[in-house]
Design a protein around this nucleic acid. Structure first.
Lengths: 186, 186
DNA sequence: GTCGTAATGGGACAGATGTCCTTTTTAATA
DNA sequence: TATTAAAAAGGACATCTGTCCCATTACGAC
């Protein structure tokens, strides 16, 4: 549930070291928001260090966490193509260090750097291919099974993610999560 | 809920007419499967005419419909980048006509045709950005509201999509869908 | 320390949903 | 027309989940 993309990270570092003029490094503290929903930005971010949550808030203030993003994950890139305001919110969970690239430079890289272009394509393809199975699984399986599956794939989940966020990731209430956990006797 | 991509369709037609050697046209009947889950293919498809459903089946045979794809939508492209077998199933709902491009040619186009490259990027970005709000909305809103929302955005949905498929799209059982519909007195 | 706030845990109840079945309707075909 | 099979509709029941509480614990600011 904490996604990473080592390949994109290492290539971004290479680009950064060969020409620092167009890429910045920024730092954020836990609970700071890097991107807010429905606002416009001109930056694409790639995570160098730390973990964020990516979530949507509905009109009633309920959050649905899409994904936890770790090293090498990019965000803000969708809006380069859609030309719309941000559709989700990105918030730091841990200390966070990011590479920050302007839209202009991002587009330059896409046009002139074939390897970068391919890596971004790949990153987007991955985002598509892990969303579908997750939502499908969540819809049709009891909460207990979803929890067991997460424990299996990310044994360290409780260390980084609060119960509240876990519930929001599963699309359920905290009460239901607690009930499920006590059924599992964890 | 029936996605389209006119821009990609018209550009594909242009490519097709300028050089027919690397793009085929194929036709399918309703209920025919173009792509099956967990199989490997070497083709990317772009819909010229008709509607398909894209769904995942779990181990118990329950289907979760990701999306209904109409004119100009592509499928099979994720696997070019991930190098994995297909993660979903694509099945014709209506009479279907598709452009079929080999992986080799698809990669050539991506490398050598900047406009094509950009259109594919855009198409993937869109796939990402409509999945998230939908699943978020579905999780937190009662079935009735989801139905009303679909009716609003796609008044013609009942004409193309069966009740059974609508239920699978909403991630609920047919029984629950019927109950909701009778509450709404539709 | 202590005050306040957030995180955690759980009881009680109502309402929503799935499962299992049966019936009705529709449409296609012999 | 008669015969199926598929789609649609819905009853009955058990279970799951959310809502609304309240209690406890942990932790940081003062």
């Amino acid at each position: 549930m904490i996604r990473t993309n080592p390949e994109l990270l290492s290539y971004t570092e290479t680009i950064y070291h060969s020409n620092k003029h167009h890429i910045n490094i920024e730092q954020y503290n836990p609970t700071e928001k890097i991107i807010e929903q429905n606002k416009r930005y001109n930056w694409v971010y790639i995570i160098k260090e730390g973990v964020t949550k990516c979530y949507l808030s509905d009109e009633k203030g309920k959050d649905f966490i899409q994904e936890f993003l770790g090293k090498g994950m990019e965000f803000g890139e969708i809006e380069v193509f859609s030309n719309k305001p941000s559709f989700c919110c990105i918030e730091a969970i841990t200390e966070l260090i990011v590479y920050k690239i302007s839209y202009t430079h991002f587009n330059n890289l896409l046009e002139n750097d074939k390897k970068f272009n391919k890596l971004i394509m790949k990153a987007m393809a991955e985002k598509i291919s892990y969303k579908a199975p997750r939502h499908s699984y969540q819809q049709y399986h009891p909460i207990e099974e979803n929890i067991l599956k997460i424990k299996e794939n990310f044994p360290e989940f409780t260390e980084v993610v609060s119960k509240n966020d876990l519930a929001k990731y599963l699309g359920i209430t905290l009460r239901s999560l607690n009930r499920a956990l006590s059924n599992l006797k964890i």
